[in-house]
């Protein structure tokens, strides 16, 4: 029974970490690392609504995160705001809204630690199937359009001349990122999910100068962190998200020292 739970959590974690590693490359290269924090915290408003109405599904968190990410993208593209400022406005709104709604709900505090820091016991078969579907679509999306995103990140004007619909791809990237982050919350938690948007590329950059190497090393280090973190969390009886992130930070530190020494 317990091995079923570990297996489910590991499958979900591995699939999401591969996808997040590819997205992490563009998030870091485009200096959008705050985006993960913003989107994950935006989901908090949706999770609070889940509590309020007694639901357990993804509908409210997904709705909140996707709406938040599209609004962030819109404010940046059309509202003459920096991405960081746009994220900050949406992020604080969602958190305030979430806390406000939670205060109206009864008995929420027992589950709060799992939402904030992840809980492998909460990963169900449905989560695994959903993650597999999202991974398949997201992986094809990111690998098919990798060189398009590469050109957009290099210079948007050149991408426009090359006939790329920059706005469409920009919004789609944020939507896919929102879905992946919401799916990651059960395993990693709201507070720590951003680690999977930053650390893969940081570890990759310590081990390789080339984008292919950075993405590959990022994915391998993410998978290692998830697997080792889940086992450690099980044996030490600690929150999964925090344990996984601590393993990841250790890998990053080792890669950093290896690069400097």
């Amino acid at each position: 029974m317990i091995w079923d739970i570990i297996l489910r959590a590991a499958v979900v974690g591995i699939l999401l970490s591969i996808l997040l590693s590819i997205m992490s490359y563009f998030v870091v290269v485009r200096k959008m690392t705050f985006a993960g924090v913003g989107i994950a915290h935006s989901a908090f408003g949706g999770i609070a609504l889940n509590f309020f109405f007694g639901f357990a599904g993804y509908i409210f968190p997904l709705f909140f995160s996707i709406a938040a990410s599209l609004l962030i993208a819109f404010l940046y593209k059309r509202g003459n705001m920096s991405e960081d400022s746009a994220i900050d406005v949406i992020f604080v709104f969602s958190m305030a809204f979430g806390v406000f709604i939670l205060s109206l709900s009864n008995g929420y505090s027992a589950n709060m630690l799992g939402i904030l820091f992840g809980n492998i016991l909460s990963v169900t078969n449905f989560d695994m199937i959903t993650t597999l579907a999202v991974f398949s679509v997201g992986f094809v999306f990111m690998t098919y359009l990798f060189s398009h995103f590469q050109l957009i990140s290099y210079n948007e004007e050149l991408a426009y001349i090359a006939g790329i619909n920059i706005d469409l791809l920009y919004y789609l990237f944020w939507v896919v990122l929102s879905v992946v982050i919401v799916l990651s919350i059960k395993l990693i938690g709201i507070i720590l999910v951003n680690a999977f948007l930053v650390l893969p590329t940081l570890v990759g950059s310590n081990c390789s100068k080339n984008y292919k190497g950075i993405v590959a090393v990022g994915a391998i280090s993410s998978i290692l962190s998830v697997v080792a973190g889940i086992f450690a969390a099980y044996f030490l009886n600690t929150p999964a998200g925090a344990t996984i992130v601590l393993v990841f930070i250790t890998i990053w530190l080792l890669s950093f020292l290896a690069k400097k020494l």
Binding site: R30, Y144, L145, F146, H148, Y211, K212
Partner: peptide, 26 residues
């Protein structure tokens, strides 16, 4: 306004406008 911090080689930068599907495996 060019992102010179991209982790790409000169050959990649020269080829960057030649976008192709599944470019990561190219």
């Amino acid at each position: 306004i060019v992102n010179w911090n991209m982790p790409i080689r000169v050959v990649d930068a020269v080829m960057i406008e030649k976008v192709k599907p599944f470019g990561i495996f190219r």
